[in-house]
Design a protein around this nucleic acid. Structure first.
Length: 283
DNA sequence: CTTATGACCTGATAGC
DNA sequence: TGCTATCAGGTCATAA
């Protein structure tokens, strides 16, 4: 999916929404709303997927990100948690323009200035989770998330890693441990820190956790500044691609040479996910 | 409790 | 050209 840098760029490109009133919500596919309740009856589904729960009539007050989640809040308190999953996009159209036509455009919000924004998700691993208030949203949807990766502190990370023997790569992918990293940025951060993805998390030494926390922040800050990574689908709300894919030092470079030492980068699945690292630089 | 596995979806690409 | 297999930025429920 969009990982933290991509979600942050979506958030920033959506900031023109703040202060706009939502005058209409068109729902083309109600099962992207609270998709975890997909098993419910059609009647219950319809009750969950109403314009009112999707901020109809409200004025957008804030866009808040935590990890890979983004909340859209209205001045009356209502909020919607947006999760992009693997292929989700939020797209904005200025006054006088249309978002589409596009396939898999599931929800479109119309604004008081004639603009609009929409939620698109071909693969439907993402979704929208309405809440009565932002506090409810945090309680129900965000309480299980670890601290945001962009601001991770070494002492906090050390505590979070100290109770699991899973490979560090797998632990960092767990949103309950630290929120925001996915397959790309875990690989890049571990390379930056010089730590093998296979190391049991609880066995990292304090100095290594310090390097790791710094590596995570450094990589994410650079990726945010570069507009995120576009491998295939990712675009921000204005439809612009990211540039950080050109800066990947290990992700997607299995079999090529390490930019630091020249050794051939190793590549094999860890925790069911493709992983690439340098055996010499990462210990 | 922690950890592993399959399921959920579509679409792009590689190989035959 | 057209078929099938594989893979992809991520969770989630369930089983071990």
């Amino acid at each position: 999916m969009p990982e933290l840098p991509e979600v942050e760029n979506v958030r920033r490109s959506l900031l023109p929404l703040v202060g706009r009133r939502i005058v209409d919500v068109r729902i083309d596919r109600s099962d992207v709303i609270e998709p975890t309740t997909r098993a419910r009856s059609p009647r219950a589904r319809a009750a969950v997927a109403t314009p009112d729960r999707l901020l109809a009539g409200g004025v957008v007050s804030r866009l808040v990100r935590h990890g890979k989640h983004m909340a859209i809040e209205a001045t009356d308190g209502r909020a919607v948690d947006v999760q992009l999953g693997m292929s989700g996009q939020v797209l904005i159209a200025p006054p006088g323009q249309q978002i589409g036509p596009l396939t898999h455009l599931h929800v479109v919000w119309s604004l008081d200035d004639g603009g609009s924004f929409g939620f698109r998700d071909p693969r439907r691993f993402g979704g929208l989770w309405p809440a009565a208030t932002f506090e409810d949203l945090q309680k129900v949807r965000w309480a299980g998330l670890g601290p945001d990766a962009l601001e991770i502190r070494a002492e906090v990370l050390r505590e979070r890693l100290s109770h699991t023997r899973r490979p560090i790569k797998v632990a960092l992918m767990d949103q309950g441990v630290i929120a925001g990293l996915g397959n790309i940025y875990v690989a890049e951060a571990l390379f930056d820190a010089g730590i093998s993805p296979l190391r049991p998390a609880e066995r990292l030494r304090p100095a290594e956790v310090l390097r790791l926390a710094e590596g995570i922040r450094r990589v994410l800050e650079a990726a945010v500044a570069a507009g995120g990574s576009t491998l295939r689908d990712y675009v921000n709300a204005r439809g612009e691609q990211g540039e950080f894919q050109g800066c990947h030092l290990v992700y997607g470079r299995g079999g090529q040479s390490c930019v630091r030492c020249g050794h051939t980068l190793r590549s094999r699945p860890i925790g069911q996910r493709a992983s690439v690292w340098c055996n010499k630089c990462q210990r």
